[in-house]
Amino acid sequence: MPSKAGRRFMIGLDVGSTTAKIVRIVDGEIEYQITGTHNWKELVKGVKKEDIISTGYFRHSVPHRASVTEITAAQFGVKHYFPEAEVIVDIGGQDTKVIDVKSNNFIINDRCSAGTGAFLEFVANYFKLELNEIGTLHFQAKRIPDINNTCGVFAISEMISQLVAGYSKEEVIAGMHYAFARRISFMIPETETIVLIGGTVKNEGMVSALRDILKKDILMPPEPQIVNALGALKYYS
């Protein structure tokens, strides 16, 4: 984050289960930084507690002037980009939240890894690939195998069976993206437009599968991972 010597800025700090994000607005421009949760302190070096609005799973554990849940922060952050957003889907490392803005309802999947970023991490780890690589390989699939298991662990066994049956790595990865997207789609209420946020939605293959299943307008902010940190800042101001 560029140094702005001599000027004090409020910052939004989102410390989640896998990554920590910081946002500040300098002369109308959004500046941000992302790191692993264990390095969160690096993000706030030299920042006074009174200048921090925290959110995320560890919002109460980090220094802050005020804190806000990631559910509310997501609504404020998304509003910055899409003021008319009706449904927000936040796919994080350890949970997925579906926020129905109109009816003030939120559904959270935090019991089962099959609908969270951890699921796609299993897939990437199996192939010894990075998460962004599986997102790209998705588009090289010529056909998509059906992976029906809704349990993360069993889906991995099914994925191996499909590899043995002759599907390519790319095809099996695409199949897993569809299995994941189907799982997420069960949580999404009737709506025309969906805004996706969270680190996992940077996986283009998964987003493509979700778009194909839902057949709705899917919108994404330029950097979906920092929306909650931005929202914390906006909430306070």
């Binding site: 806000v68 849940t69 990631e70 559910i71 509310t72 003030n104 939120f106 959270i108």
Partner: peptide
């Protein structure tokens, strides 16, 4: 977390 978010609502 859900309770806290609900209070914010």
């Amino acid at each position: 977390l859900r309770l806290e978010a609900f209070r914010e609502v």
